[in-house]
Amino acid sequence: MNDHSEQFIHELSRIRMNDAEQERMGGVIRALAATHASPSRLWFMRHATATFAVVAIVAFGGVTVSANSARPDDALYGFRLQVNDRIEAAFTRDDDEWLDVQMRQIERQLNDEDGAPDDAFEEFEQEKSHEEIEEADDDQIPDDEDVEIDDATDDGDEQEALIGRSRKSDSNDDEELREAQRIERDLGEEEAQAQRFY
């Protein structure tokens, strides 16, 4: 090919659409891409809806299960009362079952609200009550082992304290004995009266 033919061939290779033609063709391309939903878009739209529905159902189910064990101080306690309990009541077959469900729910709420306080406070209360019991036992019914007289001890005050505690327990026993005798005497008089009557 000679230079002259190369020249016009090169000019042909520079043929372009002008601005107006570019505008028109660009509009056609944009219209094609915009007005027709591509398969990928349709697939995503279809599956996006199904995926969202599945996620919503799973999330709701998870919250429901978690709320079932919620206590009054939990964030999901309100959900349990307003949603779980209502759903449970809605699925009853008759009035009797509905009443049973309501009673059970009320009882559970009461138990939840009256339920054990904080663990630390509960332990404190339990320890306190144990201490009180132990102190009461020490005052009223001392163990025999507490009363020991050790001749070898050098501390006379301690011996006197021990002896004093022993005498005190003896006096308590006497008092109980007298009380028992009094009660028996009263009962005997009542029986005698009853026999006279009949």
């Binding site: 570019q22 063709m25 944009r30």
Partner: peptide, 14 residues
């Protein structure tokens, strides 16, 4: 499609 038009639009017209 848009990329094809951008790269080959003039060539196809030619």
């Amino acid at each position: 499609l848009t990329e094809a038009y951008r790269e080959l639009g003039d060539a196809i017209f030619r």
